[in-house]
Structures are given as structure tokens and as C-alpha cells.
């Protein structure tokens, strides 16, 4: 078990290195930061000097190496645009994104699993079919369109919920939270729904498919033959067996909730890291982009690792020592 974790951590580090390398290879196609930084009035000498100062005259593997050298010491450099340490900027922005991702992830999981089980058990009922049809909308409509539609209905027409921003936030230590004020919670509803809707429908359809598959298994039939209650059969016997594939997908989806928050944050002007990243691209703010990408990949890799460990918690068959061999 420990060996497994160590091996996985090692693999994760390798993945991170490769992600960084690819990112740095692509940065030069995004644009030239020097153009933005010096403005219209500049001489060729200014440009050259700044390039040299920033190390942009070096080939990208060298730039990447320098970035790594600094990064392992916890130093991600200064933002070209704001002139402040990138780590400070990210930490400042991160709570907004994490709170948004947390709420929409929770929403996606709770409703995804609940509706998935419901539509599987009542698969011929009218309500289940209606939900399945509606879920197609969730899967097929792009996030930004849903966001704009919601803004139109609930902010413009009904005026119930704010269309942008985070509302009032409370500062607790280094963390800012919108959970404690009414305007903060109101501001969270639309973006969280928008961000979670796709994941919710995905999880729901996955749970339904897996559940239908499991309900056909012999051990479900045997559980019925033993006279167990439907509730025990559905939730104790069936749902647990659907969870392994569901956890895989859900874990990856939670990662992408944070990554895809970029679009939702742009639509709702949510002051999180996604919006920061979009602005950084426009300004070719390489240190911010690099740090953001590394942070997202760390999250993905970390979630993957947690997902793999969760398998062990759920499925006892995986806990067996491999060398012992299996009876089947």
C-alpha cells in the first residue's frame, strides 16, 4: 500500500514536469509580453534590455529550468502586469474559485447521484423519463450559454439574483468567504448552478446506467429472493456497487470543475483564479499562466490519487495482496 502510494506520487511528479514543459513550449505562441509592458513609446534597445532582464531571450527549455529552480523554492516570480508576487495573487484569488467549485461540486454530486438512482429505479415512470430528457439539455448546452440564459431570467427579468461578482465577502485570516453574508450566498447560486449543471447531468446519467447494470446482477436477484426490502436492495446492495466507476468519473470531473471555472468565472465576472488566468493570457503574463497551470495540474493529479485510494476503501477485492492470487 505504501509502495503503491510512493509509486503514484512519483508518477504524479513526472506528469507535473511534462505539463510544465508543454506549457512553456506554448507560451511563446501566445504573444510577446514585452509589447504590452513597454507600450507604444519604446526603442529597440528597451525591448532587448527587458527581454534579457526577464530571460525571454533564452530558449524555452532554459526558461522552464529557471522557472522550476525558483518554483521548488516556492517562488513563482512577479506578475508582469501587476508587479506583485504571483503566489500572493493566486492565494488571494483562490478562495473564490474553491468556494465556487466546492458548492457546484456538492450540487453535482448530491443531485447527480440522487436523480441517477431515482431514474434507474423508476426507469419507466413519467418523472424519470422527463428528467432524462431534460438532462440532455444539460449535457448539450454550452456552459456560457446556460450562464447567460440564467442571468437573463434571474437577474435581468426577475431581478432575484445578482448577475456578476461575489457579493460581500468576509475575511477570515487569509481566506475570504462569501458563505457568511446574504449577498455572498445569493451571488454564488447562479455561477455554482451553471458550473455544476454539466457535471450533475453527467454523474446522473452515469449513476443511472451503472445502477441499471447492477440491478440485473445475480446478487440483486438473490437479495430479493432473501426477502430484503427494496430500500435495502437499492441503496445498500446496488448503490454501493455502482460507486466505483462513479467515483472515477466524479473525481476527474471535480478537477475539471476547477479548471472549467474559467468560463463560468468569465461569464459571471467571478473574481477567482480562472478570471485571473484569462486576463493573464490577454497580457501574456507568463509567470501567472505558468503558476496557474501548475496549480491546476497539481489539483488534477492530487484528485486522481485520492480517487485511486478511494477504490480501496470501497472495493474489498482490491485490498487483497496481489501476490496471493484470486480464487476466481
Amino acid at each position: 500500500m505504501l509502495a503503491y502510494i510512493i509509486r503514484r506520487v512519483f508518477q504524479s511528479a513526472l506528469v507535473l514536469l511534462i505539463v510544465g514543459l508543454v506549457a512553456f513550449a506554448m507560451f511563446r505562441f501566445v504573444g510577446d509580453p514585452v509589447d504590452n509592458m513597454l507600450g507604444q513609446e519604446r526603442t529597440q534597445a528597451d525591448v532587448e534590455r527587458l527581454r534579457q532582464q526577464l530571460g525571454l531571450d533564452q530558449p524555452f527549455p532554459v526558461q522552464y529550468w529557471r522557472f522550476l529552480e525558483q518554483a521548488v523554492q516556492g517562488n513563482f516570480g512577479l506578475s508582469y502586469r501587476q508587479g506583485r508576487p504571483v503566489s500572493d495573487i493566486l492565494i488571494e484569488r483562490l478562495p473564490a474559485t474553491l468556494e465556487l467549485a466546492f458548492v457546484s461540486g456538492l450540487f453535482a454530486l448530491a443531485f447527480g447521484i440522487g436523480l441517477g438512482v431515482f431514474t434507474a429505479i423508476r426507469r419507466k415512470g413519467f418523472a424519470a423519463n422527463a428528467i432524462m430528457t431534460l438532462s440532455l439539455i444539460g449535457v448539450s448546452l454550452p456552459t456560457f450559454l446556460i450562464g447567460i440564459l440564467l442571468i437573463y431570467v434571474f437577474s435581468v427579468e426577475l431581478g432575484w439574483l445578482p448577475s456578476f461578482g461575489r457579493g460581500e465577502v468576509t475575511r477570515i485570516g487569509g481566506w475570504t468567504t462569501g458563505f457568511l453574508t446574504e449577498s455572498g450566498i445569493k451571488a454564488l447560486i447562479l455561477p455554482a448552478f451553471t458550473l455544476g449543471l454539466y457535471q450533475m447531468t453527467l454523474i446522473m446519467r452515469l449513476v443511472r446506467t451503472e445502477m441499471l447494470e447492477v440491478l440485473r446482477q445475480d446478487y440483486i436477484r438473490f437479495a430479493r429472493a432473501r426477502g430484503l426490502r427494496e430500500r435495502a436492495i437499492n441503496f445498500r446492495h446496488a448503490l454501493k456497487n455502482t460507486l466505483v466507476p462513479v467515483i472515477t468519473i466524479t473525481g476527474l470531473q471535480l478537477g475539471s470543475i476547477i479548471a472549467f471555472a474559467i468560463i463560468t468565472e468569465t461569464v459571471f465576472q467571478w473574481p477567482g483564479v480562472g478570471l485571473l488566468f484569462i486576463n493573464a493570457i490577454q497580457f501574456v503574463d507568463i509567470p501567472v499562466m505558468a503558476a496557474y497551470l501548475m496549480m491546476i495540474s497539481v489539483m488534477f493529479v492530487g484528485i486522481n490519487l485520492i480517487v485511486d485510494l478511494l477504490y480501496f476503501a470501497i472495493d474489498p477485492r482490491l485490498r487483497v495482496d496481489r501476490s496471493a492470487g484470486k480464487a476466481t
Binding site: 446482477q217 429472493a225 432473501r226 477485492r317
Partner: peptide, 30 residues
């Protein structure tokens, strides 16, 4: 009646038992 008055044994013991519950759990729940 099922389980209490009539017990049933299926063909394939490899698939008749829920793989994620201990045999004790499955016995005691019944």
C-alpha cells in the same frame, strides 16, 4: 415469505453474493 418461508439457491455462487459486503453482513441482514 421470501427468505423466511422459502429460501432460494442460485446456480452461480460466484455472482450470487454481493462482492462489497462481508458474508456476515449478508447473513445478519437476512
Amino acid at each position: 415469505v421470501r427468505g423466511r418461508k422459502i429460501g432460494m439457491i442460485f446456480q452461480d455462487p460466484l455472482t450470487s453474493l454481493n462482492p462489497l459486503l462481508t458474508i456476515g453482513d449478508q447473513l445478519t441482514e437476512t
